[in-house]
Design a protein around this nucleic acid. Structure first.
Lengths: 156, 156
DNA sequence: TATTGTTATACTCTATAACTATA
DNA sequence: TATAGTTATAGAGTATAACAATA
């Protein structure tokens, strides 16, 4: 099979693949992602936490003091969404905006003690959900999958 | 590495992995899926077609005469969403509801000639988008990925 | 009584433009 | 003038309850 530039002639398109949705990476990605997402969302519901909020907590933990704009970029969301997200975390006492930078327009974001403690719990829940949703795979297959998916979206 | 039942002790959770998001299949799935989806949506915009509409057209082509309830199940959407989706396809003259079944509550769904022709075009666009978004993978890696993802969501 | 399709509604997520305060 | 954060708003997408027609 040639893959010079992964280009597709009109001829190929007509015949190629079995024209089934299951040969589109985008389609199977979406189906798989929906499964993971709904399982995770259901488990996090007990903590009144959305998947995106968990991700935000994790990023803040990894980069304490980061700005909202940086958080937005890391989450691949727009700044206005980041505002609402951080509002919720702050209301719940899980994270804080600290006006400490030389640039007085921006905040540094930090986890509160309560945020750190909750996050520790959530990590167990999230990892269990992840293993659960991928229980059809062996440990080696799971690693393979992580590696392949990583290639797909790294250095965009 | 043991994987008896893919279960996680509290001890594991604390130490395991580098606790990074990139070791969660759900997270990397979501990031990859977003990339595929936005690329696809952008390309289909020229045809005023959403990804879900393309999927619907493909399913109707593969199972002409199917009921809306069946389409909804195949798309993993709720019946009210299927109504709106089919309305749009019918308004645009791409598909038709035909009251032909013995059960007079339901319709059979069919592509129009125009729908078939547009779908043929769209398939080229969609496959090109899919190859494009997965250009970081070799052909063999792409096949591997399709197989692994298939395992994840088949027979739920 | 149950089911197909439908309407109405509401809630989340997302995207954009416009504003404020700092720079 | 440019940037960080914010507000307001509108558009998708999605979920649920309730209804009509048919079974």
């Amino acid at each position: 099979m040639s893959r010079k530039a992964n280009t597709l002639s009109d001829d190929d398109a007509a015949s190629a693949l079995d024209s089934s949705l299951h040969n589109l990476v985008g389609y199977v990605l979406r189906r798989a992602q929906m499964k993971f997402f709904s399982n995770l969302a259901a488990r996090l519901e007990a903590y009144d936490i959305r998947p995106a909020q968990f991700t935000a907590l994790t990023i803040i933990e990894q980069s304490p003091g980061l700005m909202q704009a940086e958080l937005a970029r890391a989450l691949a969301i727009e700044p206005p969404q980041a505002v609402l997200l951080v509002n919720k975390l702050e209301e719940r006492g899980l994270a804080m905006r600290v006006r400490s930078n030389p640039d007085k327009r921006s905040y540094g974001l930090f986890l509160s003690k309560a945020g750190e403690q909750l996050l520790k719990q959530l990590k167990t829940v999230v990892q269990q959900s992840d293993l659960d949703s991928s229980s059809a795979l062996s440990a080696e297959e799971r690693e393979q999958l992580l590696a392949l998916l990583g290639k797909l979206y790294r250095d965009e």
